[in-house]
Design a binder for these strands. Structure first.
Lengths: 268, 268
DNA sequence: GAGGCGCTTCCGGTGAATGGAAACGATATG
DNA sequence: CATATCGTTTCCATTCACCGGAAGCGCCTC
């Protein structure tokens, strides 16, 4: 994993404590002290102290067997983050989409250099998809990723073009091709991926809009054998439009909030 | 000359940083710097620095309008906490319960001196209940609370008896009465509350079991006018049994994990 | 009983945290 | 335009809490 060499580029204690939290992930939900130290790249004694503080703050808890895990307090705080609001708002439309198409659906947002999966609902003809809520998907070779990328600021696109890692023989790795595809995505409002991320899986995605641009992407996954994915398109568009409408409504209520209220009008 | 105001006499920086996080709640999802300082009881300059660190660690984000809010990273970390696993595991059974009874249902766990709501599904005949996931309910005057309290360690019961605050004219405030009710709950396996927390609302709850005791409580809420809440009881018991079975299964898989494996047996 | 592993505690040196204060900026008020 | 108010950012001297190697302790294995 990481080399302890540059061990302390982080000056602040706070950042170090957060580094400790970062040692946990979906496949490491409970760690003992040594693992925690190893995975966070910090000295054992330091982690011991930091973990004690995190427990005092209830972000971590210590189980009877001595291992640490993420505490319920973290869960509570996480509920206050934007993804929760988006998820709840979009859920009914995701359900409609699953009901209408029978396929697995994804809702994702842009998160730095990748797409963060906000929710995933399995269709009746379930594909063996792993990426659950909280997981990341690459931007350059998934439908939701491309949908997000198509309306991303330049620096994100730059970064994505720089790191086009190959996942299957079908993965695009030429930035020029990707840019051309994104032009098309912007024009048609639809992003596609055919086995570019996983063999045997095609997907289709559309953007979800807020008042200030694209806020998420909504996609369906289907086995390659599916005859006409195009039939899913109408459902996708409907769901996206409904979700967008609800999202913009919530922006007005301050439920999700975005930037400052539109200026210009002098008070009456 | 330290000013011991309401502030935290907290020694460690980490705990202070977490105090800043604690300034956010369901009704304060976005705060500017001054509010953050005021609500966390720390000096402005200190909060300014801590918030910068928290942003560097991505637990907070700063919106274009300058206000802070909880970041997606916190949401991701929160997904690793036990409540998420429990919630997903129990969801199908909560849905069955709603379908079977038509009432609003609650899933809650013990969290210090109160019950933490893990999930809430609104029934068709929706009651105006607020307590959403992440919220707290009192232990002494709600059905889920009593169900949890009945199998809690002595110190929790002690604490609950000490703080029996009145919510309605029907709220029990005599510890002796509460203890007697809890005896009954242990005997029958059912906890009840009739308008003790909210006027016009009765509720019924049962415990959910893990291998090491009660891990959660499952309850239904209904308007007082509902004729026979007893009919919901069978559904409750079924749902609870199914959820318990699933939970214990997940304990074996290490999905939820609990304490150490049972000792005693020398290896075969 | 020797060796290995993981957790906890200790402690002196030091560098990072602290927070009052002042500068800065935006928005009301006279 | 001048002044007041409020929120944010920056500065800096002081001091105090963080740091982490190392030693001690408990437990298991060979």
């Amino acid at each position: 994993m990481e080399k302890t060499s540059t061990a302390t580029p982080s000056r602040s204690v706070t950042v170090r404590a957060i580094t400790v939290l970062g040692a946990f992930d979906a496949t490491h939900r409970a760690l003992n002290l040594s693992q925690l130290a190893r995975r966070s790249g910090l000295p054992l004694a330091t982690v011991h102290r930091l973990a004690a503080d995190l427990i005092e703050g209830r972000l971590l808890v210590r189980r009877p067997d001595g291992r640490y895990e993420v505490g319920a307090r973290m869960w509570q705080l996480g509920l206050l983050a934007p993804p929760t609001a988006l998820r709840e708002l979009a859920l009914p439309h995701l359900q409609d989409l699953v009901a209408g198409t029978g396929h697995t659906v994804h809702l994702a947002v842009l998160d730095g250099p990748s797409a963060l999966v906000i929710d995933r609902l399995a269709g009746s003809r379930t594909l063996p998809t792993r990426h659950s809520p909280g997981g990341h998907l690459p931007l350059h070779c998934t439908a939701v990723g491309k949908a997000l990328l198509a309306w991303s600021p330049a620096d994100v696109l730059e970064q994505a073009c720089a790191g086009m890692t190959r996942h299957t023989p079908y993965t695009l790795t030429d930035p020029r091709l990707l840019r051309r595809q994104l032009d098309e995505v912007r024009q048609t409002g639809i992003a596609r991926s055919a086995q570019e991320h996983r063999l045997g899986v095609s997907s289709l995605a559309v953007p979800v809009h807020g008042h200030n641009g694209v806020v998420a992407a909504l996609g369906v996954l289907a086995p390659l054998t599916t005859p006409r994915l195009t039939s899913a398109l109408a459902h996708l568009r409907t769901a996206s439009a409904s979700a967008s409408a609800d999202y913009m409504r919530s922006e007005l209520d301050g439920g999700v909030q975005q930037a400052e209220p539109p200026p210009g009008e002098p008070a009456p």
